[in-house]
Design a protein around this nucleic acid. Structure first.
Ligand code: FES
Ligand code: FES
Lengths: 151, 151
DNA sequence: AATAAAAAAGATGTTTTAGTCTTGTTTTTT
DNA sequence: AAAAAACAAGACTAAAACATCTTTTTTATT
């Protein structure tokens, strides 16, 4: 569905939303460690997100990545666009050149309604919305013992 | 979502369901041409589907691929399993090791319900069901001018 | 029997995605 | 000013996905 680049990126941003702010930053190494993702690969992704102003960073000692208030008003869709472009999601499930109600493929009506609903959530709900929900309901961000409550 | 291998494979089977039977076979070259897919790549996929008895074939002059009545009782899910394995669809949208209601990731409840509904359709509806529907409603299988009615 | 037409099988090549490594730049601390 | 700690950038490597090419096997036609 999503590329692994995108999965790492989304989890990183949600992680930053939960644990950082203008005065508390976290380094690439620690993020990679907590999310169990390849460190140099994730560093690239963080750079990309920084370029697109979806996350913030400062260099030097005590520097690191963090989410500003403004950053938190972005959406998961913004992350997806930054990492792999939006085109992928307009495509037909069976690979036809265009996906449309006018010229539907045999599975179009099975798939396209759901796709739109999912995309709408990703386009509408902000990062801070997701972060709040994780805090409230205790959802999981990491693969290992690390749990969002132990911190 | 699906690999291109899988897309080609599913379209091929639906194509065969519409245009072939025990006494009317079609060669790999023509299928590739009609579906606008890379010919040698598709030939491999057809071989794989044949090995798994999802489609039928005969060698030699006037040989080719076709769908037997039994073949038509398979499902799209059977094709997916044959081409890229079923595991992929159990995975978490954000790449966590396990996707479950017990330990949901932040997007789990956005995504997993839809995924299950789609999968159910793919597991329940037979190829002949899809073929009938295409005949009835004129859905599209190919990228180019080729239309299911012109034949 | 010879030929030709098709699929089957396996080796090989290309492209994209994933991931690493090295070097440079900025900034804080001393 | 020097050193150290971080991010930034770009070159590089590895693996998977995508695709092709070549040879073999089967079978209908002549
Ligand atoms: S046309 Fe195939 S999914 Fe819409
Ligand atoms: S846990 Fe992530 S999609 Fe189910």
């Amino acid at each position: 569905m999503l590329s692994s680049a995108n999965k790492y990126a989304i989890r990183s941003v949600l992680f930053l939303a939960l644990y950082t702010n203008e005065s508390k930053k976290i380094g690439a190494k620690e993020i990679a460690d907590k999310l169990e993702s390849p460190q140099p690969f994730l560093a690239k992704l963080l750079q990309q997100l920084t370029r697109d102003k979806l996350i913030s960073s400062t260099k030097g000692p005590n520097g690191g990545f963090f989410l500003s208030k403004k950053n938190k008003e972005n959406t998961i869709w913004d992350i997806i666009k930054s990492i792999e472009g939006a085109k992928k999601f307009d495509q037909c499930f069976l690979g036809l050149s265009k996906c449309s109600d006018e010229k539907p493929c045999p599975v179009h009506y099975i798939v396209s309604g759901f796709k739109e609903k999912i995309l709408k959530e990703f386009k509408d709900k902000t990062i801070s919305h997701f972060a709040d929900e994780v805090k409230r309901t205790g959802k999981i961000l990491s693969l290992k013992e690390f749990n969002v409550f132990n911190d």
